[in-house]
Design a binder for these strands. Sequence first.
DNA 1: GGCCTTTTAATAGTCTGACAAATTGGCGAT
DNA 2: ATCGCCAATTTGTCAGACTATTAAAAGGCC
Lengths: 253, 253
Amino acid sequence: MNAYDKRGRGDATETPLRHHMGQGRLHGALAHRLGVDILRGVYRQGQTLPNEMDSSSTLEISRSAYREAIRILAAKGMVESRPKTGTRVTARTRWNILDPEVLGWMFETEPSEKFILDLFELRLITEPTAAAFAAQRRQPEHIEAMDHALIVMAQQTLATEAGRQADLDFHDALMQASGNEALASLSSSIGAAVAWSTRYKQRMAALDRDPVPDHRAVFEAIARGDEGDARWTMESLVRLALRDTQRSMQKLG
Amino acid sequence: MNAYDKRGRGDATETPLRHHMGQGRLHGALAHRLGVDILRGVYRQGQTLPNEMDSSSTLEISRSAYREAIRILAAKGMVESRPKTGTRVTARTRWNILDPEVLGWMFETEPSEKFILDLFELRLITEPTAAAFAAQRRQPEHIEAMDHALIVMAQQTLATEAGRQADLDFHDALMQASGNEALASLSSSIGAAVAWSTRYKQRMAALDRDPVPDHRAVFEAIARGDEGDARWTMESLVRLALRDTQRSMQKLG
DNA sequence: GGCCTTTTAATAGTCTGACAAATTGGCGAT
DNA sequence: ATCGCCAATTTGTCAGACTATTAAAAGGCC
């Protein structure tokens, strides 16, 4: 009867974990669930969640497993634990939303259009320059990885899982080829935007445009070492993807 | 006798934790130490670290505290644990080096020049556009935060901790003002580069240039809503900071 | 000999219950 | 009203046992 006091919108999923999601370790599964709940606003900023004893008994897991889940969330800046005051959700601006796992949780439930556009803006800012850098700094291994990804994309199309993975691989190889470690670590964030736009396009079969030519143009500019062309072709690729995604979003609501 | 087999370059700090670093919680302190060790290459990619029993007894802490530390590192993509095979350091490309905490660990020991330049390239790519966005989207609260930061900077200079913090606050407020959540979460990464360049400049008193005019120019462009000028002044600010930092690095080795 | 199956052993994962440390918030003395 | 002290709450840490997973070794089959 306590622990039910401060509730956000929506209901916290309080059903025992073990029976429902057998996949993965227990602490990981719980971190996943709590993370999604926080991102959805079930637990709001500043809100303190029930203490370890109550939580672990409600979820029917041990305190240690629960604590490890909390450590994961704390490592991603989403919660903060202190003796006596408990564990509370931190301010949203402190969440590491570019963390690959957090990004994954974000897309678990349909993200807001605003956030998708934010990601596209990030792509628009970073990817053209990354492509330009790649044209100057790419190594044979990167060329090969991008080339291979393009071949798989062409064979599989974006309708298959392998094809979509190849798309992600292409962008990842490009970011790696930029020779900038900080830039390269944005690859997973970029990937999230790429995957999401693909998902939208899949829903709107009408908009199905062959993505290979765009990608190949970027690839060839990079392979040829043409910095300016790499930047330009990449910028146009991202703009097209953005336009397609926006159209799909409008029609789908 | 065991646990000493596979060693990287440098020595892993294996002295008991509790007596040396009293600050913070135990799991946090250990995660910090292991994180730094991994970043310094004491534990290399693919290397598996000693098992939980050995590690915790060597460090004279409980298994649970050790495990929580590992969970933190795993959450940042730096290690991966599996039954039977143990916990191993993941490939460097999977580390979340833009994570604020990881970035902090990175700067614990003198980072490579290459990495500092990488961060400056990231600033050069993102901050001018962020400034341009801020000029269009800034809210009164952002203006006020930036204004206040500038006042403190002018009063305190970069010689005091408060002054340096104000510098970081300025850039943070600007990124928040960009109205792009994804971009804003890069603020801490940007901040790391800012702090580091300040540190270099401090060592070379000769290069001491007053940073306030540059910042004020950016601020006024944003306050005035002048997108183009905001982009331009910010770009020149970052280029100047980069040049100063490069000069300092050359002279200091 | 080579391939498939079974067993085994090493490791992380989970659980329980206890005690320690930190810190907030109230209480009381001044 | 202010300051310092005390107590209750909560996370933090500990110890030891048991479970689940899985890589690798052993064994059996063709």
